[in-house]
Amino acid sequence: MEWQWDWALVGHILPELARAFRVTIAATVFGFSLALVGGLLLTILRRSRWKIISWPAHFTVEFIRSTPLLVQLFFIYFVLPIQLPDFGGMFTSAFVTGVLALGLHYSSYTSEVYRAGIDGVPKGQWEAAAALNMSRGRTWTSVVLPQAIPPVLPALGNYLIAMFKDTPLLYAISVAEVLTAAYQIGSQRFQYVEAFTIVGALFLIVSLISAWLIRRMERWTALPAQ
């Protein structure tokens, strides 16, 4: 079978794929916002003085990180509509389910990143805050977090890219993101080559640019040595 790359077709399907790519981007943005908050929550729980709280939190992070996102996605997709009251059909929306799964899965990664950042703040900083009689809340907001977050921004950025590359999994629950669109184009017109290659190229371009931005960020987030 002689097969040839069809540029006319590319021009034809590109707008369609670009529209679907907006869903991909939206899922990434919402999913990562959720992961940023969820990770913080898990970190706080893991730092609890009570083992009955910190240990399950620790286990949860390990468990989520060691099991496939796809299975977690199926789990949430099929379980939530049954087990929880349906807030106006919210959980039957595949997009919302997908964002929840992405957010949950990546919370386990962001939580590790936050922990590394907080562990990186020297013990003397906590002691100095205590010596100045700062409250716990104030110690966190004005001493610890401002020092813990900037050095880990590049690591968070890398997980943002990683999540972006995981959004095609939402194909499995029929969210109309870019891989789903490509698959439909492919199966309807039997034009898999162009469709999947374009999707690959889109991911490559966005990832390379983001990775370059993160490398630049690494330069100015490096705190001067203590």
Binding site: D166, L179, Y183, F196, F203
Partner: peptide
């Protein structure tokens, strides 16, 4: 730089 699932679809389809 590309997604594992996209790579899999590319190789398979």
């Amino acid at each position: 730089g590309t997604s594992a699932l996209v790579q899999l679809f590319w190789f398979y389809y």
